[in-house]
Design a protein around this nucleic acid. Structure first.
Lengths: 337, 337
DNA sequence: TTGTATGCGTTATCAG
DNA sequence: CTGATAACGCATACAA
């Protein structure tokens, strides 16, 4: 027994069009009429039928935020930021967790009645798949020309590396993750190597790891490998906070002290990193900025589907915390100053 | 230029009805016809319009999972479980993060075109708000008669308390959280007190804390208060993993060793609890069970809106990890064994 | 087994 | 400023 526009019209003794006008805030309605209709709406408890509205207008007023289904640090914070940013522009957001593998299908098969998609995570996705406007969050798509909003991961890694160098570390390792396919060099590794080179150093053999994905367990495994090296690193740059959390655990389990024996830094600025002990140093992405820009992008893309793709680089900030604290009394080889 | 059923019909030289039949898997269609139509569908790239379908049938095939917008441990895992369980019954799930305060409005104002809502978190919600079928996940609603699926929190707390007693702890404190309003005694506190009583003990004054909400920071603050007590507890039962993570951090920052000086246990069985150090002991809820039952409940509720509300109690398991490990050599007062 | 016709609740076009 | 009316794309009762 859903109540319709006609019911309201009947009760208020007006036409459907008038009710529609009132409901949609059409300006040219007399005040008296408006109040009469509003009273009827209230009395009968009318709620517009979104499906009918969508069918008619072709717009849903909803955006999908597609995220990996795994329980990863940082997703919650980004989701909240996106919801807020979208609300400011009259859009609702639904979050759509997808398993990493069938992801392609989930996107290609436009499952949700939405006006556009925000795609988080390193999911493979051709531009405009499903015919839906699409904006990537995070890393740029391997080859495709798609709108994208995110930090410069190479620079983030470089900044992290420089930070570690500044605290006296010299044997710095790196863990990146993601689909390695079309990438010549993963940006995390690239920036790390740049940072090292700028200091006249070079990555040691076996100090560059590429994990399959950004799970804490991937970071854990990679870190174990690292810590088993003959020349054990005294610091690790992780491409995400998830990897860094895994690294922290691996160090603890191996009896390696953080930050005394090993400094660890992540990328993302996730909430979870504030709640590890030692607290996790991280290169924090400005999620508010990313969310606002992403929403602005997708809105623009919806309006102008064939415009040239834009790449928005979000600012990042290094957040030094306990996990990279300078290790003054440790037996470091080249401790500076 | 969206392609419609008519376009397909025209191309395949059949009626719309036939195309509809094929698309919807109607059994009585000749094989040849089916293949012809399918070819046309493929050729033209037809995708059914969900809004039109929903308008016609009144069903969206979607469920909303309403969660708190905060970045909390455990939500991701539950969301994944719900998505899977729903997929098994032909439903898609959209996750809808809501800020804790305007939550009421977000629910009352049925925002999403869905057939039903699964409501996580301790949001206040009258039964059938928004006219949508509703199932609560987690704690039972204060007074309302609503379907609900979740563990028995009192028993979970009791089990946790008994576990701590079994490891030799005697000065056990408890931290619960949530809207305290209509609750006579929060279930977490209740079960904890029961467990203590069964061992002939009683809660010490100042050892029962009620935090405003299940944030890590709430746990942190409560734990600080606890650790500042004259008679410092040697164990804490937390009503959620989020509170427990905060407690872990508070202990670390205060120089209190876990588990030697303080045992900590949470409730939830979240992924994050596996990645703290020491790893967090927890009373793990069977999320798969909860998700399946919740979906079964909401499906039943959609079919039978006026049936009597059901309360499904999910099984829980105690997962002992390092954070409650028996402290053999510590200076405990009444160490048993 | 397949085709025709109707209406789901809205918005938009056009007169009044 | 307001009212009648035609789509929007689909599923279904009914007819063939």
């Amino acid at each position: 027994m859903p109540t319709t526009l006609r019911d309201v019209a009947q009760l208020a003794q007006v036409s459907v069009k008038t009710v529609s006008n009132v409901v949609n805030g059409y300006p040219h309605v007399s005040a008296g009429m408006r109040r009469r209709v509003e009273a009827a709406v209230e009395a009968i408890g009318y709620r517009p039928n979104r499906s009918a509205r969508t069918l008619r207008t072709g717009r849903t007023g909803m955006l999908a935020l597609i995220v990996p289904a795994a329980d990863l640090p940082g997703i919650g914070g980004l989701a909240r930021a996106v919801v807020r940013a979208a609300a400011g522009r009259g859009y609702r957001v639904v979050v759509n967790p997808v398993d990493s593998d069938p992801a392609r299908a989930a996107i290609a098969n436009p499952p949700l009645p939405v006006d556009g998609c925000l795609l988080l995570a390193d999911l493979p996705a051709a531009p405009g798949v499903g015919g839906l406007p699409l904006v990537r969050l995070g890393r740029p798509a391997p080859g495709g020309h798609v709108d994208r909003v995110g930090i410069d991961h190479a620079r983030a890694s470089r900044d992290a590396t420089v930070h570690l160098l500044g605290t006296g570390r010299r044997r710095i390792a790196a863990i990146d993750a993601g689909p390695g396919g079309p990438f010549p060099t993963p940006p995390g590794i690239q920036g790390y190597a740049d940072g090292l080179r700028a200091a006249g150093l070079a990555p040691l053999p076996g100090h560059l790891l590429q994990a399959p994905s950004h799970q804490r367990a991937d970071g854990y495994r990679a870190a174990r490998t690292l810590l088993a090296q003959h020349l054990r690193p005294d610091a690790v740059v992780c491409a995400s906070d998830a990897l860094a959390v895994g690294t922290l655990c691996a160090a603890f389990d191996a009896g390696v002290r953080v930050p005394e024996d090993l400094a660890v830094i992540g990328v993302g600025g996730s909430e979870e990193g504030r709640w590890t002990r030692p607290a996790l140093s991280t290169v924090s992405a400005d999620t508010g900025f990313i969310a606002r820009q992403a929403v602005a992008r997708i809105v623009a893309r919806i309006a102008e589907p064939h415009a040239a793709p834009v790449d928005v680089v979000a600012p990042h900030t290094l957040l030094p915390r306990a996990s990279t604290r300078r290790a003054d009394r440790s037996g470091m080889l080249h401790a500076s100053r």
